[in-house]
Amino acid sequence: MTTRKNSDLIGIVLMGGNSQRMGKDKSQISYHRIPQYQYLFQLLSKYCSEVYLSCNAKQQTKIESSFPLIKDVNDNKGPLEGIKSAFNIIDKSLLTVPCDMPVINDELILQLINSRNSDLDAVCYSDTDGHINPLFAIWEESCIEELKKFKGDSPKQFLKLVRTQVLKASSEALKNINTPDELNLYLKNQG
């Protein structure tokens, strides 16, 4: 597969949550023989001119120093805080991926990239049940000013306010793992 870096697209691995339901940092779980944050960093590096890990203050000390970080301005405010924190220092479009989705792959990323349109502010996915996943998405530079004015903390609510294209993907492709039971079941099914 031939890949091309997009000079106007910055990759952001969203990993700043508390992982309360999991009981341990979800970004450190290994689905692909390396911690998930490293896997997603490598994956996004194929398509984005730069990639950053969006993290909270506690996570900073657990991440190898070779990875560029963007620390959440306000910890424990949810994933939209990670996106806002990235846009505070980056004035390019963002390709965001959450660290709790082990099935993210080249095909899904390319579909997002190929669906970009200058008339849109964002492109994201919806699963077969109609549940929108606003965190595996491209947030165009055109939405920065609206995001700065947005007072809520729901990425889904924000994407309803701007011009967003919603792509379809299977529920399995958009699976996220949030609890030890979900993790054990996923790993068992992987063989």
Rank of each mutant, 00 (worst) to 15 (best):
D25V: 01
S27R: 06
Q28D: 04
Q28C: 14
I29H: 04
I29Y: 10
H32P: 09
H32Q: 14
R33W: 07
I34L: 07
I34W: 00
P35H: 11
P35D: 07
Q36T: 03
Q38E: 05
Y39N: 13
Y39P: 03
L40K: 00
Q42S: 09
Q42G: 05
L44C: 15
S49H: 01
S49R: 01
E50C: 05
V51Q: 10
Y52I: 00
Y52E: 08
L53M: 10
N56L: 01
N56S: 15
A57H: 11
K58R: 02
Q59T: 01
T61V: 12
K62C: 10
K62Q: 07
K62M: 07
K62T: 09
I63L: 08
I63D: 14
S65E: 15
S66W: 02
S66P: 07
F67T: 05
K71Y: 04
D72C: 14
V73S: 14
V73A: 11
N74F: 04
N74Y: 05
N74L: 15
K77E: 12
P79E: 02
L80S: 08
G82V: 01
G82F: 00
S85D: 03
A86S: 14
F87C: 09
I90E: 00
D91E: 12
K92L: 08
K92N: 13
L94D: 01
L95S: 01
T96Y: 01
T96D: 09
V97N: 03
P98Y: 02
P98F: 11
C99I: 08
C99K: 01
M101Q: 05
M101K: 12
M101N: 08
P102S: 04
V103R: 11
N105C: 15
N105I: 07
D106C: 13
D106S: 10
E107Q: 14
E107H: 15
L112V: 04
L112Y: 12
N114A: 09
D119Y: 12
L120Y: 13
L120G: 15
A122Y: 10
A122C: 07
V123S: 11
C124L: 08
C124G: 14
S126I: 11
D129Q: 09
G130Q: 13
G130Y: 06
G130E: 11
H131S: 12
P134Y: 01
F136T: 12
A137C: 08
A137G: 05
I138M: 08
I138F: 01
I138T: 06
I138D: 05
W139K: 04
W139N: 13
E140Y: 12
E140T: 04
S142D: 09
S142P: 03
S142M: 05
I144P: 13
I144K: 12
E145D: 07
L147F: 02
K148N: 13
K149C: 15
F150A: 14
F150T: 06
K151E: 10
P155F: 00
Q157P: 01
Q157T: 15
L159N: 06
L161Y: 13
L161H: 15
R163V: 08
Q165T: 03
